[in-house]
Design a protein around this nucleic acid. Structure first.
Lengths: 260, 260
DNA sequence: GCGCCGGCTTGATCCGGATCAAGTCCGCCT
DNA sequence: AGGCGGACTTGATCCGGATCAAGCCGGCGC
């Protein structure tokens, strides 16, 4: 992610907020997630603390917002992770995505002034909240911020498109490989070891997200483990052979057979 | 879709652009797709014709934009229909959505200043183009427009989430039923007969979109036809029993067996 | 410690949709 | 008209993942 465009004058003073500041300031954390510099168009965004609400940490299973919640907000994950899902008429639900530390959620909910999905913590998680109403007002006065909001929203739009791409794969192993690869890339993006994954979601959640059943997930992990592609230990997965995993993520026709 | 919020003063003069004006003005067409009134915050948006470029009609198979196209734009479909897709590393591609008359596309592509997917006409189609760069500039000066852009973008974000929800269904019949129901709802939204569908895409496109193969699509249509739920005639589908179709879209466990 | 319970793994079987293989239909071009 | 080609349909078979069923493991409360 590159720094957003800004006036030449502001460029000299501006710097993109560093990950190291996440602990210090809630606003800094939000700015980083939005790929924003500390200053834009002459406004010192780091001072916009009043925009950002700190929230009580969420316990595992706690809901951040629900389908139908009014006064939607954007949320930046400071630590832990969450899942978003929608409830289907028959009662069961479909998981739409997982949101890891440093990522953002809540872009549903602007349309009808209400959230359209439910967000729930997968583990103890802390988030900061940016009420969209206020953010929108500030953005109206700061064109650079407005522009960057559109960019980030579009980025999430595109990110979301990976979900149907993955579900379009007919081989279950391909889907899982794509899922693991995505997690790996997101680890890398936040400066972590991309080969060490912490699967904070349950097998059931993974299965739901991938359009499979829990038994299939379990079997696939066993196969990958047996072939030495990954080391699976409870919720910790270490990728041992990224290249092979990458190959499975594509076609995976013959590779699939090879892992009998 | 309700009218967007606006100041009380502007509300009196404003009116949402009528579908009937689509033929007249390209700007009117864009305004309608964005759920915008003709006037907002005192600006007469209908006069913003310079924002909207009229495009040569696209022939069937012509591409509107490609993955990687620079200077991304929003496009409003004035007539005909298009599909958007991404190309996978192995060569085949995944269809992400279909865009019918009156709908909008192009919200990918704001993030990296380039489109992330490819849009292709399914039949002769005319669109009008709103270069995002210019739109963004105007939005920066018209808070009401900016706000509405966020709303519409969020709406598309949520609409896109229906795709994985549909692909999460394990029964192929459920997926097709959901697909047909969505098309039906979109027909209704543009004032057409919701029971008369024009499937401008090929069976292959449908299969790809639904995560199935072409033979399955064909068989499912035959089953639905044999059971009297729909009347299928080439690309024209008439829904004869909306309630039953709706039931199939949900669980569809036993209904599935019933249509042996 | 013990026992319970929920999440996970593993095995056996079944079945729905993919695959392979013929056709059929229709538009289109000459 | 004829005939070519692509989109679609239909049938037969196969196979991968769902389902059913039986443990296993680890955590937690008592």
């Amino acid at each position: 992610m590159t720094a957003p465009p800004r006036s030449a004058a502001a460029a000299a003073a501006a710097r993109v907020v560093d990950i190291g500041e996440l602990r210090q300031s809630c606003a800094a954390c939000a700015l980083h997630a939005l790929c924003l510099p500390a200053s834009i168009d002459g406004h010192d965004l780091a001072r916009l603390d009043h925009l950002v609400k700190r929230r009580q940490p969420l316990d595992r299973g706690a809901t951040l917002f629900r389908e139908g919640s009014a006064h939607p907000s954007l949320f930046v994950v400071r630590s832990g992770s969450l899942k978003t899902s929608v409830t289907l008429p028959e009662g069961d639900n479909q998981i739409l995505g997982f949101h890891l530390s440093g990522e953002i959620l809540g872009f549903d909910g602007l349309a009808g002034e209400r959230h359209q999905c439910t967000a729930e913590a997968l583990e103890r998680a802390s988030v900061c909240e940016v009420p969209f109403e206020q953010l929108s007002r500030v953005a109206a006065q700061v064109p650079g911020l407005q522009h960057q909001l559109f960019r980030v929203m579009s980025r999430e739009f595109v990110r979301e498109q990976q979900h149907p791409v993955m579900m379009g794969r007919k081989q279950a192993l391909s889907r899982l490989a794509i899922f693991l690869r995505n997690l790996s890339e997101r680890r890398a993006a936040t400066g972590h070891d991309p080969l060490e994954l912490q699967l904070s979601m349950s097998r059931q959640d993974m299965a739901n997200y991938l359009g499979l059943v829990i038994e299939t997930i379990s079997r696939l992990f066993s196969r990958l483990h047996a072939q030495g592609l990954v080391r699976v230990e409870r919720k910790t997965v270490r990728i041992l052979d990224p290249a092979a995993l990458h190959a499975l993520a594509e076609g995976g026709e013959d590779e699939n057979r090879a892992l009998a």
